[in-house]
Structures are given as C-alpha cells and as structure tokens.
Design a protein around this nucleic acid. Structure first.
Lengths: 140, 140
DNA sequence: CAGCATCCTGCACGATACTG
DNA sequence: CAGTATCGTGCAGGATGCTG
C-alpha cells in the first residue's frame, strides 16, 4: 500500500464542485432515463407505444415526462406525424449516442454483479438476526 | 418499412432483461451514492464527519443509510475504532475501486454539459410562452 | 464523534378519465 | 395512438432529540 497521502478534503467545496460527475449522473441516470436511452440506442427509433411496451413497468404519464426531459436535454429527438391515428417516433440524438461507450462500460462492469450479491449475502449473514431486527432482505 | 433493421422489440422482455445495465445503475448511481463513492475514491479513506462535510448537503441520517448500503454491496468498507471519542473510517474497496474507469468515462462525458445546457435553452425558447400555461407569478 | 429513533413533509409516481 | 389533467399515495429524505 502506498501511503497515498489521504490529503484533507478541501473545505471550500460546494456540492457541485465536490463531485464533478454528479451533474452527468443527474442527466443520464435519473429515474427512468437509463432504460429509455438504452432502448432507443439499442433498437433505434421507436414509437411511444413501443417504448411503453419495452419498459413494461413504466406508466404512460411518466414515460411522457421522461421523454420530454430527455428531449429538452438534447439526448432524444421527437418526430410527430399528424396522421390518423397520430404517430410519434422517438430517436436518440447524436449527443445521446455519444453515451454509448458509457453504456458499454456499465455493461462490462455488470460482470461484478455476482460479487455484489455475494457481498450482500455475507453482510446479511454477518448482521445475522442480532439486535432487534431489520427483517432480512426485503430490499426494494 | 424501414430498410434500417429497426427490428421489432422482443415482446418477452421483462424489466430487468430489457435493460441489462439497469441493475448496475441501481447499485452505483442510486440517490447519494455517486458523490460518496467519488469522494472515497478521490480522497481515500475518510471519517464519517469528513464525508459529511465533503457532501455538504447530505444529512447524517441519509449518509449513514447510503454508507450501509454501499458497505452491504461490498463497495465500501467500514472500520470502527472504539476510542473516545469514537472514530469510524470508511474506505472504498477493491470492488469499488473497479468503478474508477466508469467514473473517468463520466468525467469525460461532462464536456458535453454545455451542449445539454444549450439544448435546454433552445427547447425552452422554442416552447417559449406558447400555450396557456403557467401564468407568470400572477397567483399569490 | 457516529450513530439510531421518531415524527413530519414533499413530490415522484400510480391510477383513472378524458381529448385531438 | 399519444398524449394531457386531476386526484391520491408511499416513501425517500429533512428536522430534531437522545445514546455509547
């Protein structure tokens, strides 16, 4: 172990400065944005109802909200065709597509999910049932 | 028909299968975990109060919750020293450190934040004040 | 210092109904 | 089909107070 100078944290940091990647996370990984962006990036342009089906658990209201947000952020583009019945197609933008390597990194890291699950088992076992307790598991 | 292989989305996808990176996002980028992991990765092991100060806006309760979660997931280790006053030091684990390239990707992408902000301005201008909406502060 | 217990609040999201 | 409008709710998170 190199004694890597655990240098004192600068005291003047404010929330945004403290963690420069936080803003990106807010934009890209906020509530439902990941599956939406991923689906659009993976399967190409899709209609509203297709997205709705692809992300089975989302409600149309929230899907609309998130799509608007992503459109506003320039990550997704919306094409409206005033036919009957109306048709709307969503597509990932160039800016959105620039997230692809990020998603790839994420996907790579997912090989570690077993370790996480193992760590959880170890932890839960270590905590045992000691103390008044927190019924095991039941997270989310 | 698009000649562009917008192949139909498989219908049998369930939420988790639909987006393979979602679980990773849940673990790594859930509510306050990013600044915590980032701080521990950047500044090395730190005491509770140091983290509290580094992430200025977090409350001790929530910080505890998130640290427990990260500890359970094996991303952070907790060392308790029963002195007076007691001392607790948190450190990122090897597994946690394996996220570093991911954070680096995030940091790289943050050069695009201007584009996002520009897109927002464009969008807001495009929507302008059209439609009935949102009477500017007339109420109360 | 490093927490846990308790109470309280906001708002993110679900459910439902209705338009173009 | 692709949304909006409205109402209701759970629970993440804030505030406060108390321990080892």
């Amino acid at each position: 172990m190199s004694d890597k100078t655990t240098r004192p944290v600068p005291i003047d940091v404010d929330p945004e400065l403290a963690c420069p990647i936080a803003p990106v996370v807010d934009i890209v990984f906020s509530r439902w944005t990941t599956p939406i962006l991923w689906a659009l990036n993976e399967f190409g342009r899709q209609r509203f109802v297709e997205l709705e089906r692809a992300i089975t658990t989302i409600t149309p209201k929230v899907l609309t909200q998130r799509l608007r947000q992503l459109e506003r952020d320039g990550l997704v583009s919306r094409a409206y065709y005033p036919e009957v019945p109306p048709r709307v197609e969503y597509e990932i933008t160039e800016l959105g597509r620039s997230l692809a390597p990020l998603f790839a990194s994420l996907a790579e890291w997912s090989v570690n999910l077993d370790k996480v699950e193992q760590a959880r088992r170890d932890y839960d076992e270590r905590v045992h049932g000691s103390r008044r307790g927190t019924p095991p598991s039941t997270q989310r």
